[in-house]
Amino acid sequence: MLPTPSQTVGPFYGYALPFPDGAAVAPLGRPGTVVFHGLVLDGEGAPIPDALLEFWQAAPDGGRQGRAGSMRRDHTTGGHAGRDGVTFTGFGRVATDADGSWSLHTLTPPAEAPYLAVCVFARGLLHHLFTRVYLPDARPDEVLRRIPAERRSTLFAREERPGVFGFDIRLQGAPHEETVFLDFA
């Protein structure tokens, strides 16, 4: 069957898609929690304040079946209840701040899939983009091997201090600066 075309997320998803605890993929206080953070930038290097990022990853034990409860609801008030503090769902959703920044608290992905899968949406972006945030010590896998050597570094997070990783997403730029995006369709 022929696919339904993509359309931009537009500027007004902010009251619909982000949810409390969207950035808190790791259960509260769980040991081994790490932080990924960075900027989303346009072709002039300007921060993009209306981008939405989604993250999906393997659990530390390698599991990728996922669990419900990312956007748990309060069935009395109809509001958002936040995550349950126990379940690792593997899914995060973060809208960029006014300065184009984002951050995500999660558990370190396992060595056999040492990356976060990312889906980028933004006003002005007609079709979402997939990329990956690799841990600095990730060994080359099939995807990395397909990427020209000089562009590979755009997919590696840099460890700023223990447990804190920086990663900027440049939607457009010089070949060695522009983030590598993946085509799954």
Binding site: D42, G43, E44, A46, I48, A122, R123, G124, L125, L126, L129, F130, V143, R146, I147, R151, L171, Q172, G173, P175, E178, T179, V180, F181, L182, D183, F184, A185
Partner: peptide, 14 residues
Amino acid sequence: SLLRHPRQPLVPAD
């Protein structure tokens, strides 16, 4: 869309 699209080809992963 002008400043918000990649100029490099996407890496095939299908």
